[in-house]
Design a protein around this nucleic acid. Structure first.
Lengths: 342, 342
DNA sequence: TTGTATGCGTTATCAC
DNA sequence: GTGATAACGCATACAA
């Protein structure tokens, strides 16, 4: 494979002039440019970015570390990051952690060795270990979608999980529901915690404190949704409404209700977090708190790029974007007042 | 940031010994190992892969270039590639081309500069330009999901589009349909071509040659599906069944039929290519030819890794995996024999 | 506007 | 089992 030196020789210039032409940096004459470009074409020269980056200490690569690439919510994030990064001349490496802290650390180690210029992290758990690891290498990092433990010095861009949950539960309460169960994600993920907190606030404000304990913990996947729904159904008295804390839980939950012969929303209502893209869904059905996923990731990427260009202010930011409540069939009509036992 | 030299100094060994310990290569004493590992811990040393790769001419990174990361079919491919590559100690860079040849070339240029060890390519079009570009750099490449022009010397792993389409149309014909329209992808994508070819073979074999021309070309997206369905509906006489050549087209098509006040399958039947994952779909509805996406990508990755380890035989392979026909509601019941006009 | 010398952090090669 | 030296391909610093 040809190198700058080969190109330089053929163009009768020095290697550094070739470098200048390629990177549009410094001065070079029009004639030099033409000779260099001709030589590049003739030799089929492809610059070696490893060498370039080793020398310049810049890779123009950022990484997106997320928990589940099969979830459309994260696909949207990925797409948004790619769009924003690509506009700025950056490549994106996407890594999957499967909500596993071990996988997360493994991926981060590799990425840091790879000398990525910055990292967007959807943390798999609520400890600051990963952020610490990244910051020890002086690599800029922005946390996406989830909170960090109080006191962690890091930029965060996320949706308002607590507020969205609060509004969803208010909606259910307004429809007459009093026994509402939550099918939650992992205990140590902030979005799960916040959505439960929003639920509890709404319940308490409506003087339904006693009922505010119907919380089932599992994970943000369809099988967990199925299993948690089954557990919720066996409660006595049975909940009249279920709050699925993400899209996959909602789908698993709906399957469980179908299998139990229950109709939604006639027999039991469902509300959920995270909308499914209309490109995937033929019959939009769930009442949801939709997060602005694309916008969120765009803001996070812009912040990261600003950081690694030294443009952002020193202080860490926490940007919280509001959710939008979209009412569809699954939440049903107003309940009759308590029909008595049975 | 600490370098091998810093570690070496602290451990009282030479840099190369540090390298040997890190890479488990060559000889070193147990004592040297311990001293080196201690020094690495104390200094928080992180190896620089850029330098490593520059010297060793190996990055342990492969790239997956695909056309639409928002499509679950490709998400499954991506997941599969990651799993297989990760087992072998490789990272995966995923790039999106949006079915654009220009984007594809742009991405490939960057990846080649990045010195990736190999490339898995879902080509956006049927020319061999991209494969040529990659091979000129002596980078191993495996084409995934789609064919190349006859004569192109390259490994290919793909599904049997022609066969799957043939079976779907046979199914419709068996149900009594005679006017079947195809909502196809781009003209210059092999999967679109093959699915049309399978349709035509089935139609001709059933002596429905005259009707075998109801082919609408567009793209593999939901909006195209919507638009092609509208065009198909305005044909006179109207088709009694539609063949959507991928999952997104099927969804757009269904929307168009809903908006036109038509019931599926009572008024018009639909069959489609590519299943949607059960984790996303609460009511599986479409009769489909499902491709073994995970298996396909796994085979392709293994072949690529074998190639770049020099393990594979010299001759190029074309591996074609069969599709599975899954019958659901959308294809409907047997048609009554022609009910006459009106 | 152009070129020379040098070094980025690592590993291949060969000598000890 | 260990180390000195050079080289990977490019860009920074400075000189011309």
């Amino acid at each position: 494979m040809a190198t700058v030196r080969d190109v330089a020789k053929r163009a009768n210039v020095s290697p550094i002039t070739v470098s200048r032409v390629i990177n549009q940096s410094g001065y070079f004459s029009e004639e030099a440019r033409m000779r260099v470009e001709a030589a590049i074409d003739e030799l089929g020269y492809v610059p070696n970015r490893l060498a370039r980056s080793l020398r310049s200490k810049r890779t123009n690569v950022i990484a997106l570390v997320l928990t589940d690439i099969t979830n459309p919510f994260f696909t949207t994030l990925a797409r948004s990051v790619e769009d924003a990064a690509s506009d700025a001349g950056f490549m994106v490496i996407i890594c999957n952690t499967d909500e596993s802290e071990v996988e997360e650390q493994k991926n981060l180690h590799t990425l840091l060795q790879q000398q990525v210029d910055g990292i967007l992290l959807v943390p798999a758990c609520s400890t600051s270990a990963s952020v610490d690891l990244i910051q020890k290498q002086k690599t800029p990092v922005v946390v996406l979608d989830r909170r960090m433990p109080a006191g962690t010095e890091v930029d965060i861009v996320r949706g308002d999980s607590e507020g969205g949950a609060y509004q969803l539960i208010q909606l259910l309460i307004g429809l007459g529901h009093k026994r509402i169960a939550v099918l939650s994600g992992p205990r140590d993920v902030s979005t799960a915690q916040d959505r439960v907190a929003g639920y509890q606030r709404a319940m308490c404000e409506a003087d339904l404190e006693a009922a505010a304990n119907l919380v089932y913990y599992g994970g943000f996947t369809q099988p967990y949704g199925y299993e948690m729904a089954q557990r919720a159904l066996s409660a006595n008295p049975r909940p009249t409404a279920l709050f699925a804390t993400n899209n996959f839980i909602a789908i698993g939950c709906l399957k469980a209700l179908q299998d139990a012969g229950l109709r939604v929303p006639e027999d039991i209502a469902i509300v959920s977090f995270d909308d499914l893209p209309s490109t995937l869904i033929t019959f939009p059905f769930f009442t949801v708190a939709a997060q602005p996923a694309y916008e969120m990731a765009k803001k996070a990427t812009q912040l990261l790029l600003a950081r690694l260009n030294g443009e952002a202010s020193a202080a860490c930011q926490e940007i919280v974007l509001p959710t939008e409540i979209i009412v569809r069939q699954s939440s049903g009509q107003p309940q009759r007042s308590d029909p008595g036992k049975g």
